[in-house]
Design a protein around this nucleic acid. Structure first.
Length: 135
DNA sequence: GCCAACGTTGGC
DNA sequence: GCCAACGTTGGC
């Protein structure tokens, strides 16, 4: 089991919408590093859902439901991939970027180190810490 | 709205 | 292969 974090602007695709729809194909990723991360995802992996830009907080946990397959929305077929995500749990208390920055144990996570990466791995310890913060 | 960080493109 | 120009992301 691996742990991940994905980012989305809530105005583009929100956690609430994922909860409502019950499943989504995580498409549109056009960054090699993010794609490489998605290719490592396996069904059952936990995925923290971060709202960027307007909210800047982790708001819930999704699960990988289907491993990487070709992104049908890509112009260049076979170059990019999607995974299917399903909602798993809400964060009772969204964990803000501020909180992450202030936690000494979380200083190495990609969310801080590589602010533009939209799909990133998390260490199990980091996932546990964030889970505890989010209740 | 601005700008830093970063990725991509294209001329040389 | 280098690097300037440009585009995008995302925090502030």
């Amino acid at each position: 089991m691996q742990y991940w974090l994905v980012k989305s602007e809530p105005e583009t695709y929100s956690w609430a919408r994922l909860v409502k729809e019950g499943r989504t194909m995580w498409d549109g990723v056009r960054n090699y590093q993010a794609r490489n991360n998605m290719q490592q995802m396996q069904p059952g992996d936990m995925v923290l859902f971060y709202h960027s830009v307007s909210e800047k907080a982790i708001v819930g946990i999704a699960k990988v439901d289907k491993a990487a397959y070709p992104d049908p929305t890509a112009e260049e077929q076979g170059k990019w991939v999607v995974v299917d995500l399903v909602p798993y749990r809400d964060f009772k208390d969204p964990v803000t970027l501020q909180q992450v920055k202030q936690d000494q144990r979380l200083q190495d996570i990609a969310l801080l180190r590589q602010s533009r990466l939209s799909v990133m791995p998390l260490k199990a310890e980091e996932f546990d810490i964030l889970l505890a913060l989010g209740n």
